[in-house]
Write a protein that binds this DNA or RNA. Structure first.
Length: 280
DNA sequence: CGGCAAACCTGCGAGC
DNA sequence: TGCTCGCAGGTTTGCC
């Protein structure tokens, strides 16, 4: 499920029920996630009020009045569900419940358990190992064509790999990299260092546009619901290339029979989808 | 440092 | 129907 637009959708769904709420109970049923859930999690959070729910790249940061900050990552299959009434009995993959003084339950579910919940403190959060090397958030004003060009300069790797690298730009994943490259007309195989000037500008604009459109659509729902209120995201219906191998490129008028349509290739172990005619 | 495969997990759909 | 295989939205680690 979660790249930046899905995480932002989750943040927006949870914020109204978590912000200003006091946590009355934290139930951890599965401590074995991407990293072990801290043993003192409940002790650190219960009784504190949630000051704010923020997002940094694909991480959710829940800031507490006591100074604690819960760092949440949804991994590949993690999602959150809000229960305003008594929640159903937890299933095998319902690893955690956060209960608030308003009687709301926020349940964390993650079948593959690549997600994480860790603790830090507001005084040390900027030096946190998971956060300190992240590149700019593409929707922030720290990100534009010039900044992207600077970060790509001199790199020999294909641009697909560079955009997947969270140190270059933070928040893209496999779907939105393919879609952004398509929108900017850049081949995923192009050497990163050659994406400079106008080309970098175009790519930066494409990244921002794709992410903004995806957030407006409530993210992408391929297998899981993304929104904590159960609503499906529908950006998958706007995909130009992702998952569309052999289908017609939306920008090409050529016959699919002749061109073969959208191509798939594997780069660094991940599928990339692109159009050989429109992306150079 | 760069690049790549493997590792961590489970579920699902395709094909036989 | 039921099994096996490949693939899946992420990130770290370890090896050349």
């Amino acid at each position: 499920m979660p790249e930046l637009p899905e995480v932002e959708t989750v943040r927006r769904g949870l914020a109204p029920v978590l912000e200003n709420a006091t946590l009355t109970e934290v139930q951890v049923r599965t401590a074995k996630l991407r990293w072990p859930v801290p043993k003192d999690l409940a002790k650190s959070l219960v009784g504190d009020r949630v000051l704010g729910l923020r997002r940094r790249a694909k991480y959710l940061l829940m800031e507490m009045t006591g100074g604690g900050v819960a760092i949440i990552h949804l991994g590949m299959t993690g999602h959150m569900t809000i229960w305003r009434e008594t929640p159903p009995p937890p299933g095998r993959h319902d690893h955690m419940d956060l209960l608030t003084d308003a009687g709301v339950c926020v349940r964390f579910t993650d079948s593959r358990r690549f997600g994480a919940l860790l603790l830090d403190h507001r005084d040390t959060i900027t030096e946190n190992k998971l956060l300190r090397n992240l590149g700019p958030d593409p929707l922030s004003n720290r990100f534009d064509g010039q900044e992207l060009a600077r970060r790509l300069k001199g790199r020999a790797s294909p641009i697909k790999a560079a955009l997947m690298d969270q140190r270059i730009v933070a928040g893209l994943g496999n779907i939105y990299v393919s879609e952004s490259l398509f929108r900017s007309g850049i081949s995923p195989k192009r050497k990163s260092g050659t994406v400079q000037g106008g080309r970098a500008e175009k790519l930066a604009v494409a990244i921002r546009g794709v992410l903004a459109d995806a957030i407006a659509a409530g993210g992408t729902s391929l297998r899981d619901h993304v929104s904590p209120d159960g609503a499906m995201g529908y950006f998958q219906h706007q995909f130009s290339v992702y998952g569309r191998e052999g289908k017609a490129c939306p920008g090409c008028v050529c016959d699919v029979e002749k061109t073969g349509g959208i191509r798939r290739l594997v780069q660094a172990g991940r599928s990339t989808f692109y159009c050989t005619r429109r992306q150079r």
